[in-house]
């Protein structure tokens, strides 16, 4: 989840081969994709629900979150507002009586020319799980590998194949 334009769909597109039409995103606010990842000792099938940023204010997005093993919250590292939106989202999720793993990704790191000197004024890095660039593909696969490991070791909602 995340605000409009933070790069959620780009992240998913970088990760998986899309099969459903992107029109689903604008019509019902979600598109489901699948990604299989090989971990050290197992294979994880991720079913990724890419929820349109425009639907964050719509009640239906709460329905889309039900049953989720993890919620990947994406923000744009160059837009503080998108990070604040994530914080608000997380508190809403806690109120929804659902208990998914919250995984935070800061995207568009490619826009930061000098990462070492980049001033994360708004960012508490300890709260961010991964910084990625959907444009370059930087850390995208790693982000979902890392998430899969967390899920494989912690989630009670996983089904064995």
């Amino acid at each position: 989840m995340g605000s409009v334009g933070v790069g959620k769909t780009s992240l998913v597109e970088r990760l998986v081969y899309q099969r459903f039409s992107p029109e689903y995103l604008s019509s019902i606010g979600v598109r489901v994709d699948k990604k299989s990842l090989e971990l050290d000792d197992c294979k994880v099938n991720l079913l990724i629900w890419d929820i349109a940023g425009e639907f964050m204010t719509h009640k239906v997005y709460q329905k889309y979150l039900r049953g989720a093993a993890a919620v990947v919250c994406v923000f744009d590292v160059t837009r503080e507002q998108s990070f604040l939106a994530i914080k608000s989202l997380i508190s809403e999720i806690s109120n929804e009586q659902i208990n998914p793993i919250i995984y935070i990704i800061g995207n568009k790191i490619d826009l930061v020319k000098n990462k070492a000197e980049f001033n994360y004024l708004f960012l508490d890095e300890s709260n961010v799980d991964m910084l990625t660039s959907a444009k370059d593909g930087e850390k995208v696969e790693e982000a979902f590998q890392f998430l899969s490991k967390i899920l494989a070791s912690n989630s009670p909602n996983l089904r064995r194949v």
Partner: peptide, 19 residues
């Protein structure tokens, strides 16, 4: 073709319609 994705998308559509 892909029953996992089909199941996911069908569930999403149902959720949308219920809402």
């Amino acid at each position: 073709s892909d029953t996992d994705m089909f199941a996911g998308m069908l569930t999403a559509i149902r959720s949308f319609m219920q809402e």
